[in-house]
Design a protein around this nucleic acid. Structure first.
Lengths: 248, 248
DNA sequence: TTTTCGTCAACTGCCTACAGCATACAGTCT
DNA sequence: AGACTGTATGCTGTAGGCAGTTGACGAAAA
């Protein structure tokens, strides 16, 4: 009797992770991409990567698929993988979508706010402020991410949260040191946001988050405009997958 | 010299598609999942699927990764793949997010509207209406999808468009025959939406799309409430990657 | 010189095979 | 009887290898 006949059993497997090789490869390649050791548009030969990382081609292939799913590389069937070439236009769109998702999350968080949730946010906020005061930029950035992620969690919409996380990861392409520039102001906005959430004031929370994210967006863009020499490819239209047949 | 040294070359390869096996497998498995031949929570043994489809495990693995990326299956490292167990809660969240994305798209489409775009929408709308009049449900559904996809395109935000497409595909889990129920009303809303877009009236377009999608959402949910025996678990908060324990 | 065709190297997609775990079962001990 | 442990089976993760195809380079023809 094969295990798959036990439909519905699906007892939650232990999350003791042997950390499959594919994930290490994923991390390694991601690091190479972010650090620009693998450059945008570059063709990624599986054999080459396999040799470079000392593994076989199989884990490489799977890691590439994961990377493709998050938008780091483009997979062209029969032609291999290419490092995704980010454009200023795409960055703008990415940040706009992120703003949209986060704004909605803030509204929902305000609607469903709980004691513990607000307490958690407040704790993060003061930790973040402390980090800023101590000039601990790395720490502040980390806490900032955590705070935003927490707001997403508190929205109660897991789908929204997952999507936002995905988008946020992609923004890492443009890892300009924006956080350094916002400093205190950003954390004051956070405090105001938390207050609005605690009051259950949806509109206020949404408005604050909107301004907050839009401001980050403008900062990113001005930063990009400087050091990005603009993309060589003029934003080619991607092939479309079959549309989802569903009714409205 | 290896080909990958030619960074920046990245000439978009011809999209002459030999249709890799992995994609056929993807389609086949998706069909099996949607048709409930593979049931939610079921463990998918690679060897079994491989034998069933007459291919080796490799394309199966890759197809499973693709399916995982779109939320159809859950991958648990070291434990294999499980058919994702959708819940009413998730459906609600999915539809809420879709409404959010489509509403924003409608606003943007109104802002950036063009002659051709509006003409395209009008054509689709009348075709859709004709299909409804002719009781061609399948056709109407297809045209409806195309119309919504077109609005997404016209928003000019490719990231937003892709994300919405992804979400819309996931909604196919809940492929209740909603379209049959909305009928004419839906297409009248479409017409109003197009008029607002043509006028460049963002707020109006956004409002119409919001109502439009929210209505669909309510219809879906009421439908789900009926024929879905409702998930056994009373909307348990999802753990990190723990599978939805189904049918205990 | 420019164009076309043939040859060739390299790469992708796929298959087979093996090692390491995880789960299930049976036998043993308390 | 119940709990525990050893064993066996099946599955995943990975390696290695082969066939088909793509793209590039160079030679021959216009």
């Amino acid at each position: 009797m094969s295990r798959s006949d036990l439909a519905g059993k699906a007892a939650a497997p232990k999350i003791a992770r042997p950390v499959p090789l594919r994930e290490s490869v994923f991390e390694a390649l991601l690091e190479l991409i972010i650090s620009s050791h693998l450059r945008p548009g570059q063709h990624l030969a599986e054999s080459e990567l396999a040799e470079m990382l000392g593994v076989s081609r199989q884990p490489i292939r799977e890691a590439l698929q994961l990377l493709s799913g998050e938008g780091w590389v483009d997979l062209h069937p029969g032609h291999g993988a290419f490092v995704h070439a980010p454009t200023a236009e795409e960055a703008d769109q990415l940040l706009a979508v992120r703003a949209l998702l986060e704004t909605e999350a803030a509204r929902l968080a305000a609607r469903h706010h709980t004691e513990e949730g607000v307490a958690l946010l407040r704790a993060l906020c003061s930790r973040g402020l402390a980090a800023v005061e101590a000039d601990d930029v790395e720490g502040a950035v980390a806490i900032n991410s955590e705070l935003h992620a927490t707001v997403m969690e508190l929205s109660g919409n897991m789908v929204l949260s997952d999507l936002a996380a995905q988008v946020s990861r992609r923004v890492r392409w443009y890892h300009t040191p924006v956080a350094r520039q916002r400093g205190r102001a950003s954390w004051e906005e956070h405090a105001a946001l938390i207050a609005a959430i605690a009051d259950g004031d949806e509109d206020q929370a949404g408005e604050i988050m909107k301004n907050h994210t839009e401001q980050t967006r403008h900062l990113y863009l001005s930063q990009l405009g400087e050091d990005e020499p603009a993309e060589p490819l003029p934003s080619k239209r991607r092939k479309r997958r079959a549309p989802a047949a569903l009714g409205n």
